[in-house]
Write a protein that binds this DNA or RNA. Structure first.
Lengths: 148, 148
DNA sequence: TTTGCTGCAAATAGTTTGCAGAGAC
DNA sequence: GTCTCTGCAAACTATTTGCAGCAAA
């Protein structure tokens, strides 16, 4: 996991560079994305901020995520069931391991991706720009509580 | 690519086995899923069938996809932008290579998945049940027309 | 004849957008 | 003071659901 403070500064700097205003709501959203503890959803971010900014609206969360996405500083993980989760801590594509019971998302270390990417490019003649790799399963916690 | 006729029969047989009625609309949907040329969306399927069944409704397409999914005979590919594509020809998880320009979807041959799955299971202590691997890029056709 | 299926229309849920006022610079 | 951002509510889109009539077995 990257240093959240560093990520926070990076994203804020990008906002400035692109001429965007620095509002308290915006900073709060960036702060949460910079750590991205547990890969929050838009609603999660909204809930976390509502305490400090009672007037905060979900629309603002979405607008800011969209903005930060446009600089490539947040990774959007959309799932078939319609749920979206965000990772502003490691904004570049990386594998995820998702528990289908408790929805926990873990980042494994895998190094075979680059080899695979090259293999695919050669076989399909595509210019590969990005990728997405998710594993779905049951985490050890949920397996334990299942047996109980 | 699996033989579409065989896939068609397999799916129809599963429907019978589970006590579902065989309606013309259902057969038309199964027919398209069995080939899954170009990994159609629900709307694509609807459009393809509307010619033969002018009263066909999208709801019926969705209901049947849901039913066939419940036997594991169709693979649903949901994307963050909300689009869903289906593959009833190869219903088990397999990598996809997606052109971000023309939305073409290609199935590459890759054999390193099993090794990866094992690696992830060992590292995270998850029981891995399924996975999803997509590569995004630009196909050779689109690259050619881009240069023109 | 019985039951499940279809077609229609309305409901749903997550996300986006229009607009007027508020706030950053 | 200017111009973007926010908050609210309404709009939007893909999918799901309730219901009455229809059709497969």
């Amino acid at each position: 996991m990257a240093d959240p403070k560093e990520r926070f500064e990076t994203i804020v700097q990008k906002l400035r560079d692109h001429g965007h205003k620095i509002t308290p709501q915006r900073l709060a959203i960036v702060g949460i994305l910079a750590k991205s503890h547990g890969h929050p959803s838009a609603e999660d971010i909204y809930d976390l901020i509502k305490g400090d900014f009672p007037t905060m609206s979900l629309a603002t969360v979405y607008r800011n995520i969209l903005l930060i996405k446009s600089f490539g500083e947040v990774l959007e993980l959309g799932f078939p069931d319609g749920s979206n989760r965000y990772d502003g801590n490691k904004p570049h594509p990386h594998p995820h391991v998702i528990c289908i019971r408790c929805k926990k998302i873990v980042d494994p270390d895998l190094d075979s991706m680059d080899i695979m990417k090259k293999e695919v490019a050669e076989e399909t003649h595509f210019k590969i720009l990005s990728h997405r790799l998710d594993f779905f399963g049951i985490c050890s916690d949920c397996m334990a509580s299942e047996k109980a």
